[in-house]
Write a protein that binds this DNA or RNA. Structure first.
Lengths: 149, 149
DNA sequence: TTTATTAGTTAGATGAAACTAACATATACT
DNA sequence: AGTATATGTTAGTTTCATCTAACTAATAAA
């Protein structure tokens, strides 16, 4: 159900409206599956859908959808920028992992990416460059003593 | 199914044998569900199970189970040591996230934790201590220039 | 304005994974 | 050995998300 909400939000943002057909296309399910899902979401007060009309999100649904999109986004960013996972795989993994995260974990992941992305030194923090090196060579650089705290 | 394999491996390790009852207890399902799962896993050549006997893993099943346990373990370690998620939540999240990770992501997570845990400087790398500080205060320490690479 | 095409809906089927209730076996106790 | 209790199994049901096929409504074209 989270996937449906997320897709509806995406479609509204991308092409202005959410149609049954497009929701199904993006989620790789057929129209009747979309319909069934919309009935459930409608009962839950998350979407507004009248017969043969476009699909819309209620305030509550919009809020939930945005939350899920944020989870998705943070996982993609983490996987691509920290772990250097290729974008396609990162996207797929994020799609699955986004549903498995507790609120607490989501918050912390967000903080973590904030911490990395606002690094004042240079674009990519030193320690991450060291990690890149470790991935590439299996060895550490900068292993001599240093006194910075 | 991955959960069943993982649980069987855990039981064998912890108490020596895997019984239907104990598998069910750990996974919060009833005996008949365990039985049905064992039939499937048996057909897939992942477990060995004869009527009224203990459950055992085939070599293939053992390998898969260990792989899943490694995913679980790496996620718990990441969540607790990097993000400082409380152990209970970390455990729950790991249980769900472990199934959502691609091989590639698993490998990189593993490298990442290796990189962090073998830090030669002190127990906890400086940058992680900086992250801890950022979490606690919302501010960065060490924001002045420094020349170490 | 009639008809063709496209999109949406409904009804009914399937498969997966769980359940309960009833039955079977094994083990441990007397 | 005989029986009670635990555990394991089978049969049959439920729920859920998907599907296909058939039908309906909206739209665009002739």
């Amino acid at each position: 159900m989270e996937d449906y909400l997320e897709t509806i939000a995406t479609l509204k943002k991308e092409i202005g409206v959410a149609r049954v057909k497009d929701i199904g296309r993006l989620l790789n399910v057929k129209n009747p599956s979309v319909n069934a899902a919309l009935n459930v979401l409608s009962d839950l007060g998350l979407v507004f859908h009248e017969r043969y009309g476009y699909v819309d999100l209620t305030d509550k649904g919009e809020e939930l959808a945005q939350n899920i999109k944020k989870r998705h986004d943070i996982m993609v960013r983490f996987l691509t920028t920290i772990l250097k996972i290729d974008p396609k795989t990162a996207e797929e993994d994020a799609c699955r992992m986004e549903h498995a995260m507790s609120d607490e974990t989501f918050e912390k992941f967000t903080k973590f990416m904030e911490f990395v992305e606002t690094c004042p030194k240079k674009e990519r923090p030193i320690w991450l460059q060291n990690f890149d090196f470790y991935i590439k060579t299996g060895k550490r650089q900068n292993c001599t003593k240093r006194e910075d705290k």
